[in-house]
Every structure is written in C-alpha cells, then in structure tokens.
Nucleic acid binder design. Sequence first.
DNA 1: CGTTTTTGACCAGCGC
DNA 2: GCGCTGGTCAAAAACG
Length: 507
Amino acid sequence: MSEVREENARLKTLLEKIEMDYKSLQMRFVNICQPEANKKSDHDPPPSGNGQIEELELVSLCLGRSPSDPKKNNNDSSSSFKNRKEDENLKEGLKLGLDFNCFQDCKSDAIDLSTDPSPDNSALESKEEEAAGETWPPSKVLKAMRNEDDDLSQASIKRARVSVRARCDTPTMSDGCQWRKYGQKIAKGNPCPRAYYRCTVAPSCPVRKQVQRCAEDTSILITTYEGTHNHPLPVSATAMASATAAAASMLLSGSSSSEPGLGPAATTNLRSNLHGLNVNLSDNSKYHPYYLPNSSSSPFPSITLDLTTNPSTSSAQFNMFSSTSLQSRLPSTSFSFSPSQTNVPPALWSNNNLNYGAISYNKNQMISTLSSGRTSQEHLYQPFKQKNYQAPASQQALTETLTKAITSDPSFRSVIAAAITTMVGGGGATPANIKVENLGKKLKWDEQMTVTSSNGCTSSFLSQSSSSASQSVNLRKQRTQPAFSVSIGAPSATPVDDIDQTNSGEP
DNA sequence: CGTTTTTGACCAGCGC
DNA sequence: GCGCTGGTCAAAAACG
C-alpha cells in the first residue's frame, strides 16, 4: 500500500507536470495552425486556461473537419439535408465517430475523441445515445445511414480495410475473435489461396477478414479486416479490433477530408491544398515500410500495418505495434513478455495472441484513445520498465513521462489523436508522416499512412510524382527540457532525417 | 447431429 | 457485350 501511495503521489506530480506540458503543446499547436486557422477562425482558444474549449476544437479537427468556426459547421449541418454532397461529407465524420465508439468502453473517452463544440451532427447525438446504453448499432442510425447515403463514399466508409502483415505459421492469425470460413479463392498474382472469414461471435456481426499468404514470402500472413464488430469482444480480441479500428479511423478521417466534395467548412482550406496533398500522397506511398498503402486497385480505403519488419534494424521507424516503450509496458507475467524480447520482431508477437493483443491495445491507447480505464497496468509496467531500460535515467524519466502522459491523461491522448488525425486528414495533407519521437530512443513511433479516398480521387494521384516532402508531426520530448513540442514540416521542408526514403522514383 | 470447412456456382464491377 | 476478377452463396463433405 505504501508503494502504491508513493506511486500515486508520483503520478500526481507527473500529472501536474504533464498538464503543463500539455498546455505548452496546445499553445504550440495552435500557433502552428494559426496561419490556416486565421483565415477561417476568429475564435482561437486562448493560449491557456480554457483547456476544454481547446480540446474541443482539436476534437473537431480529429473528425477531419476544418478547425474553423464550429458555428459554421452547425450551419452546415442544418443545411446538410438540402445539400447531398455536403451531407455525405458530414456523415463521414460522423461515421468515424461511430467506428470509434464501437470499441469504447468509456463514454468519457468517446467524448474526448469526438465531441464537437457544435451540436451539428445528429449522428453524434445518436452516438451519445449509444454510449448511454443503446445496443449497437442503433437501428435508426443504420437505417438513416442506409437510406440517406448509399453511394460509393458511404460504401467506402463502411468498408474501410485494415491489413495486417505478420509472420505467422498458423493458417490464420489468432486475434481473439471467432471466425468462420465462408470461401476461398485463388487471387490473381498470388498462388496462395485467399480465405474469407466472417466473425461468428455474433450472428449479425458484419466484420469479415481475408487471409492470404504473401506471394514473395509465404511465412508472411496478410490479414485484411473489414467492418466493425457490433458486439462486445473477448478481451483477447479487443486489441486487434481496437488497433484496426484506430487505423481505419485514421484512414477514414483522412479519406473524408481528402475528398474533393468536402463540406463547406473544410472546402476552402482543403481544396486549396489539394494539390500539395496529392503530392504528398505520391511521395509517402512509396518509401515507408511500416504503414503501407494497400493495394491501389481496391476501391475502398485501406491501410496496412506491417508487422514483419524488425524495429531494431530500423529503430528510427515506428512500427505501429513495435514501440519498445509499448512493449515495456506489458506485465511480463501476464503476457509472456521477457526483457530479452524487447527487440523481438513484432511479427513474432503475432503468433502469440496475448502478446500481440496487449501490444496492440497499448498502441491503441496512445494513438486513438479508443479505450480507457485500464491504466491500472501502470503499476505493473513501471518496475518492469525500470528494470529493463538501459537508457540514461533522464531518458527513462522522459519516456515514463511521455508514456504516462499518453496513457493517463485522456485529454492529452485526445490532443495527440487529434493532431495525428488532423495531419493525416483534416490538415490537408494526406498522407502524412506522423512521428511521435522520443529523443531518448526509447519511444519512437513513426507512422505513415497513405489514404486512398473513397471515390478513388486521391488514389489516382498516387501515380503522380512529386518532390514535395511529406507533412509531419513531431511530438518531441526534449532531453533537457521536458516539454512537448509540435513541429509541422511544411510540404517543402526538408524531409525528416530518420525517415527511410527509399523512394527511388523521387525526382 | 450440429457446426465448420470445402468448393463449384453465381453475381457484380471493371476494363477492353 | 464479353471476359476477367474478386467476393459471396450454398450444398456437400468433413469434423467433433
């Protein structure tokens, strides 16, 4: 108990510190967004003091919307019934929220991530109803979705796909769910048959997955998930589901905002940036080995999480599930995780359901705040981490601070999620390199996501080449200055140094 | 005997 | 319109 009290006191101290850092981060973020926001927004939050409002604005960004006037968004909503295209765009954001909500255990987190200052969207209300206990999916929401929006963009939203590449010996990757095989096909270009599975945890669950071995390396299993579970998941399954949902949500948020047919609130900004956006698509889609764009032939937005690359061989890169700091959070007793496995390729995790799930879950916590209320693990990973980290004490403390900040402070998570999502989608730069980096080399993520829009518009830009650098978000924890900073590289800025640019086609 | 897998048939979308 | 391909269906077979 005394240890717990000490830990608690320490956490409180950290929390205070984190809050200060958080405010600092917000200030910087707002300042960075100022040039674009100034055009549309005349009510930028004060630099500090009203964190609620600031967060809400960031949340609105996370929906792939313009950071601009929420009242305008409200007007958009009111007129959305008259303007179909605008309505579609609006709904995309709303559906994103619904997707998130599917995996949220905590209503507060749902609000964190998707609460919008504007009461503009009816589906958001539906979401709140759902969070209040309505069964999923709310039939009226589904009906409304189907009746009012059955075009391609709608289909794309519903059918966003997340592929997971992992080395796996078994026929399918154990992700905790129950699957029933309903078909098998030989797909073109791959002698290995593709198997089709649907989730059988609930009879009406729409989630399906495709499993196929990689043609080049049959030890690699490519699992493509599609849809969102409409039922409670087993604990062992929440990790993958949350991870894929997070990726899908990021993908969709980018997709929704990268479409030409944007809502009025976002149209001005994003359309003006469309060209640069396409350029970034071209660039980033080629050289990032971790966060791969899926097959461009797919009419649906898709994203690939590549777990086949050993993070230790390219430590500068962030593998979605490979952050060593994430691993270190795992209680070794529960997840068969030992210090010697710190650099085990993530592919190996995939063979261990518990390991994989836990890592995915923790990643998810950081990236998209899809679930919460499980930070009780902190007391477990804390001593473990201290035992295993070989980094200098200052780096270790920094890592702890950052990790705890992300895991313990929903607001902070929301900020990060919003920033990431904004840069991916709402900020007018898709795809984006999103790098959350710890200079102590113990917390390194580098995500890159290439988004193909639902209408195929942006995917067509993949064929274009450009010299523009990607837009990136750096969340840095300085060694000497324990404060977060956000730096957003301009499209013409020099590339981030630790991004492996293997794009041979780059001019 | 119920559930799951297999596998050929069928359908829709797309390119030519 | 035709062929190709991806995805799904459903009857039969296999399994526990």
